[in-house]
C-alpha cells in the first residue's frame, strides 16, 4: 500500500461525517446485533414462540372470567366488547416496548460485558448513535414480534383487525419509538451509573407497562395511577395504535392521542438526550467506563 493511497483513505473518512455517517453506523450496529443473536440457535426459537407465550396466559385469564370472547362490562369501559382483539393488539405492542426497554436500555451493559464498549467509544461515531443503532435493531426485532403476534392472534385466537389502519398504525409506531427512546436514554443512564441497574430497569419498565392500557383500559387503575398514566408516551401510543388497527383511518379520539403523543415525545426525547449526554460525560470523568 502506498503512502498516497493510505492518506486518502483517512482524508476520505474525515470528509464524510454528518447524518449519513451516523445512519450508516446505526445500521451497522443493528446488523451486528442480528448476527450476534442468530449465533444462539435457541434465541431464534424463542423469538417465534414468544408471542404465544405472552399472550396465552392473558387470554386464559380473560376466558376464566368472561367465558366468551365478548364482554359487556368491557364494552362499558372501552367502547368495544371484543376484549380478545383489544388485549391481542395491546400485548403485541408491549412486546415492542419490552424489546426497546430491555434490548436498548441494556445495550451499554451488554457491550461492556463482552468487552467491546470502549472500542465502540473510540470510533468517531456520536455516543448516542450507539443507543440509536441498538434501538434500530430492537425496532426491527420487536416490530417483527408485533407482526408475528398479530398474525397468530388473527389466525388462532379470533382477533379481528381493520387493514385500513395498518399504515397510520405504523406512523404511531414511529411516534411511539421517539418517546420510548427518551425513556431508553434515561434507562441507559441508570445502567451507566448503577451496578445493579437491571433491577431498576425491570421496575421502571414494568411500571410503564402496568400504567399503560395494554390489556385493560386505564380506568381500572387506582385514580392516582390514571393521572400518571396520561404522562407516559406508552399510554397514548398503545391506544392510538390499537384504535387504528381496530377502527381503521377514522378511529375515534385519534387526533387528541396524536397531539398528546407529539408533545410528550418532544419532552421525553429532549430530557432523555440531555440526561444521557451529561451522564456519559460524568462516567468518563469518573473513568468508570470499563468497570461500571
Amino acid at each position: 500500500m502506498t503512502q498516497t493511497e493510505s492518506s486518502s483513505l483517512h482524508e476520505k473518512m474525515m470528509k464524510r461525517g454528518g447524518l449519513r455517517a451516523e445512519l450508516r453506523a446505526a445500521n451497522a450496529l443493528s446488523i451486528k446485533q442480528w448476527r450476534v443473536e442468530f449465533s444462539y440457535p435457541l434465541s431464534v426459537l424463542y423469538f417465534i414462540v414468544m408471542p404465544f407465550l405472552w399472550f396465552l396466559p392473558m387470554l386464559l385469564a380473560g376466558t376464566a372470567v368472561a367465558g366468551s370472547p365478548t364482554s359487556s362490562v368491557f364494552g362499558t369501559y372501552t367502547g368495544t366488547t371484543d376484549w380478545v382483539t383489544y388485549i391481542a393488539i395491546g400485548s403485541a405492542f408491549s412486546g415492542l416496548a419490552m424489546s426497546l426497554f430491555w434490548g436498548t436500555g441494556m445495550a451499554f451493559r451488554r457491550e461492556q460485558n463482552v468487552g467491546t464498549l470502549e472500542t465502540l467509544m473510540t470510533t468517531p461515531i456520536r455516543r448516542d448513535t450507539i443507543v440509536w443503532g441498538t434501538m434500530l435493531h430492537n425496532v426491527q426485532h420487536g416490530g417483527l414480534g408485533v407482526i408475528l403476534q398479530l398474525i397468530f392472534s388473527v389466525l388462532f385466537f379470533g382477533a379481528t383487525l381493520n387493514l385500513w389502519g395498518v399504515f397510520p398504525a405504523l406512523g404511531i409506531v414511529v411516534l411511539a419509538v421517539i418517546g420510548m427512546q427518551g425513556i431508553v436514554f434515561a434507562l441507559t443512564c441508570i445502567v451507566l451509573l448503577a451496578k445493579q441497574g437491571w433491577m431498576i430497569i425491570e421496575v421502571v419498565s414494568e411500571v410503564f407497562l402496568i400504567i399503560a392500557p395494554i390489556s385493560y383500559p386505564i380506568v381500572v387503575l387506582p385514580p392516582i395511577l390514571q393521572y400518571v398514566s396520561l404522562a407516559s408516551p406508552l399510554t397514548w401510543s398503545v391506544d392510538a395504535f390499537r384504535s387504528f388497527l381496530m377502527y381503521g383511518f377514522l378511529a375515534p379520539g385519534i387526533i387528541q392521542a396524536v397531539a398528546a403523543l407529539l408533545i410528550i415525545d418532544i419532552l421525553f426525547i429532549v430530557v432523555g438526550s440531555l440526561l444521557f449526554k451529561y451522564t456519559e460525560r460524568y462516567v468518563r470523568a469518573q473513568g468508570a467506563l470499563s468497570q461500571f
Binding site: 473518512m13 461525517g17 455517517a21 450508516r24 453506523a25 451497522a28 450496529l29 446488523i31 470510533t123 461515531i125
Partner: peptide
Amino acid sequence: IFFAKLYRM
C-alpha cells in the same frame, strides 16, 4: 466490516 462502517465507510 462492522467497525469500518463506524468509520464512515
